[in-house]
């Protein structure tokens, strides 16, 4: 009896260390995640400005303002549209092509070759977003490399595609930069996902006389569904947060309105123009949009665990 009590207390003492080890993280997240998000919500209910010390609670006035007024020419609705167009235009081709590349790489028989392709696709992800945007902005100049390549590929001559000056093309340009930077990253994600499907399943399919095309549609894709879901939502969340590419383009002198994504609007409204309350309201809206997709991601992840091979 005495002995049992003793082990129990040792275990309890040990368990206390476990909690102790999590304390730094708990304090950190309390200070740098929970407090700020609550603070953001409270600030969004005020007319707080960067200058001036006094401010009042104004209820949901900021939200009403954002959904009905222009916010000095850069409205929230425009930002939601810009973010939505960018996200859709970017993550759909990115997921499709990354999946295609991953499947093709997995089929290579020489490990050295697959390694080469993986590394080559991944290199852009190593550059910082600022560098990526800068390179492309120069290549997108009227007499730059991209117009020349487009003319070669599309059999036109001397045509200027207005990559940075036409509103639609400007959006396309930011999508191309982002696609270029992250295609390798998502390809690798898919390869990791594909690698977790046991090869015995493919072998069984091939023995059964299934060809590659058939194997892909009937075996690989259904098994990959949770992975595809997960990667899609990750790509989507990533696109929703885009900032650097758009900011660098605007810095370089392009129009802001077509690419005024929500993060950029928060920055300009809150930091440049000092409307902290209004910017916080935008932050909360962004938070809820992302919350919905994160929830979907977690349920996709859960779904993934249920699959048994």
């Amino acid at each position: 009896m005495k002995h049992r009590v003793k082990t129990y207390s040792i275990e309890r003492k040990q368990a206390r260390y476990g909690f102790l080890f999590t304390v730094p993280c708990l304090l950190f997240f309390a200070m740098f995640s929970f407090y700020p998000i609550i603070n953001a919500f409270i600030t969004s209910l005020t007319n707080r400005r960067a200058v001036g010390r006094t401010w009042d609670f104004t209820g949901f006035e900021n939200y009403a303002y954002l959904f009905t007024k222009g916010n000095g020419g850069f409205s929230l609705l425009n930002s939601l549209r810009a973010t939505g167009v960018f996200t859709l235009g970017c993550f759909v081709p990115m997921v499709v092509i990354a999946l295609l590349l991953a499947v093709l790489i997995m089929q290579l028989r020489k490990p050295g070759h697959s390694k080469f392709f993986e590394l080559s696709y991944y290199i852009p992800a190593v550059l910082s977003s600022v560098v990526a945007a800068t390179i492309w902005r120069i290549m997108f100049q009227p007499t730059g490399l991209i117009n020349q390549l487009s003319n070669t590929i599309l059999f036109t001559s001397g045509k200027d595609y207005h990559w940075l000056t036409d509103n639609g093309m400007l959006v396309a340009s930011t999508i191309i930069v982002y696609f270029w930077k992250y295609i390798g990253y998502f390809t690798i994600l898919f390869i990791t996902g594909l690698a977790s499907i046991p090869p015995t399943i493919y072998e069984a399919a091939i023995v059964d006389g299934s060809n590659r095309w058939h194997t892909f549609w009937k075996i690989t894709l259904p098994l990959l569904k949770p992975t595809v879901m997960l990667v899609s939502i990750m790509a989507m969340l990533q696109c929703l947060k885009t900032f650097s590419t758009q900011y660098m383009f605007v810095q370089g002198g392009t129009a802001r309105l077509p690419i005024d994504v929500i993060t950029m609007n928060i920055y300009f409204t809150g930091i440049r123009n000092g409307y902290l309350g209004r910017a916080s309201a935008m932050s909360i809206i962004l938070f809820f949009i992302m919350l919905i997709f994160t929830y979907l991601q977690f349920s996709a992840q859960k779904g993934g665990e249920d699959v048994e091979y």
Partner: peptide, 12 residues
């Protein structure tokens, strides 16, 4: 806290 993106709390 993974659901709280930095972009949403940068102002506070």
């Amino acid at each position: 806290t993974m659901m709280i993106p930095f972009e949403a709390i940068m102002i506070p």
